[in-house]
Design a binder for these strands. Structure first.
Lengths: 345, 345
DNA sequence: CGGAATGATGGTAGCGCTACCATCATTCCG
DNA sequence: CGGAATGATGGTAGCGCTACCATCATTCCG
């Protein structure tokens, strides 16, 4: 931690490069940002000077002068959640070779926090914003509408996008998962849900639609909690559900953590899976296919959502508006042992 | 996406606030950064003007003028890894009420990538840097030595810190875990390791030290791969290890993902845990205590490492040098069913 | 009670870039 | 072949802040 002489601290600036290359500062600036607009000979001289001095542009000065920071603002509701970790990884991977940096923040599933962070992000004038979900508060929505940059809403799709959207239907996911269990022969299929954010609510709605269509819905089959999801919680919710309704013969879990908790509890209590209880999860984490028995789940394309959100934003920054502003990446039902009920019954 | 009129785009600036409050711009600047140096009456006027205009300081202009960005640069080797996700969460949580932003990047376990990102970060003049591990390349080490800001190396401890350090000894973790298995009565204890980054190597070294001390070491007990860790991989490594050495009676897994893969494979192959095979993991993810049987693991304090790294950096920014620059947060051995071998044997 | 110390406030210049406009050379084409 | 279009380069000003220094009022104390 050596003290810096007043301001700057001796790092080379664009003026140093210009001097060494024998050109104007603005030409250096151009050579770095729009090389095709500078003659090849000057470009080479400049490149050499840059390397000789180890020059790196100051992103802060750049942002101030151009009224636009080379930053992607990314808002996610959680950082521990595996699902968002993968979305974020997709975003980082897609941006690592670009000049853009990522500004990530955690809303902790709070709309107010989202507003505050949005304000903060906008004070930097980001190049693009990526936000999670479609249930922004009115104030947040207004901020996004006037963001002055491309905005991508991720993880879900719905009507009326701020700008662009990429995700899938959680309602359909819940419906398909539940239908699968009904078709597999389960009748008293419970729903286990933690946290119950808007996406969880939609999965529950899908579950309910499927159960009602089959004439099987019973509100006592639904067990939810606002508590954050965990494997431990899956065990606890399952115990509650069984206590409430001993005739339960299957559970559709809001996510794989819960499903895993149920699976472990079944082992511990010697409940046969899939014979006595069927289990379906959501998200299809890596471990679901290795579990014993392997666990049926809805595979979602998290990493791909992150990647494509960046691609869409990058295109929009480049001035290309996609013909379709809403992209449905869908999901896949992975049928596994945990719902393979013997045909006889 | 409305086009912005040239520069600025109409957002209120510090000059607008100053005008409205009837003070000089510099006084506004001070009222925001060092309120105690401004009289109460002016402070109130300024506060009111700020609110009326919805003024937010431009972080880029701030960084440029003060030659110091309010940014914490954070380098982690992985974003999917649960362990780093929690460290990162600790960092974000500790910083969310401060003026500091987080600049996070993923080195993908590459030293060269770390150098490149460090260069990039330093061009922003961050307020502090948090880097993972103690095995920086020479060039990276040089960059850190001259960073001109507090530097915290996290996750590990060792001699010769760049500046500050917080973590624990992976060697000791490996040794303690292995000793526990030996004491529990296991003799042919295998080591399963994925990725084998420096921290994994040290856990392996700890394992080896314990086995050698007990006269039990055999190189054929060690099964490692450079492949990224996953539950699936745990299963595969375990199968390999068993094929190589059918007399195996326990495994110490480099991390909990692998341990879980082993557990599931034991279920599938009807291998009794802990009777026939004992299992110990590393990190103690939430699910280890819920698993059936519950899995012995080394609990590490990831979230706390993230939090305290920030606390240390913040103190250093404030000019307080800790008397102890190296902080060992230790770890806890969690004994569970997976290594509770019946006493008789 | 008068000079020195202290505290509050403000003006000026500058941080390192890029937007905007100007200039000059070269190419184009009727 | 001459004026217009095009392309390459550069100068100037300004982005929105804060470091540095100056000024003035107030307090302190022998």
């Amino acid at each position: 931690m050596k003290p810096r002489t007043r301001r700057g601290g001796g790092r080379p600036t664009i003026a140093d490069v210009a001097r060494l290359a024998g050109v104007g500062a603005i030409t250096v600036s151009r050579a770095l940002r729009e090389p095709e607009r500078v003659s090849e000979s000057l470009r080479k001289q400049i490149q050499q000077a840059v390397e000789e001095l180890g020059y790196l542009p100051d992103p802060n000065a750049r942002a101030l002068a151009s009224a636009r920071a080379e930053v992607f603002g990314v808002l996610v509701p959680s950082l521990t959640n595996n699902v968002f970790a993968e979305v974020v990884r997709g975003i980082y991977d897609s941006l690592s070779d670009s000049p853009f940096r990522v500004q990530l923040a955690n809303t902790h599933y709070s709309g107010l926090e989202e507003e505050r962070l949005l304000q903060l992000f906008l004070s930097q004038r980001p190049a693009a914003l990526i936000v999670s979900g479609i249930d922004q508060t009115e104030a947040a929505r207004r901020l996004l509408d006037n963001a002055g940059c491309p905005v991508v809403q991720i993880m879900e799709i719905g009507p009326d996008p701020v700008d662009m959207m990429i995700g899938f239907s959680h309602f359909e996911g819940g419906r398909v998962a539940t239908n699968h269990m009904i078709e597999a022969g389960y009748r008293r299929v419970g729903f286990l849900g933690a946290r119950m954010d808007p996406r969880s609510q939609r999965r529950l709605a899908g579950y309910r639609a499927a159960m009602e269509a089959a004439g099987l819905f019973d509100p006592r089959l639904v067990t939810t909690t606002p508590v954050l999801s965990s494997v431990t919680l899956g065990r606890d919710l399952f115990r509650d559900a069984l206590a409430k309704m001993p005739s339960l013969d299957g559970v559709f879990c809001n996510n794989d953590d819960l499903a895993l908790g149920v699976l472990f509890e079944c082992h511990r209590a010697s409940i046969a899976v899939p014979q006595t209880i069927g289990i379906t999860g959501f998200n299809d984490l890596d471990m679901m296919q290795v579990a014993f028995p392997s666990v049926t789940s809805i595979r979602t394309h998290r990493y791909e959502i992150g990647r494509q959100a960046v691609t869409m934003a990058l295109a929009a920054i480049g001035g290309e508006r996609p013909e379709n502003r809403i992209k449905d990446l869908g999901f896949d039902l992975k049928r596994r042992e945990s719902t393979a009920r013997p045909a006889d019954r």
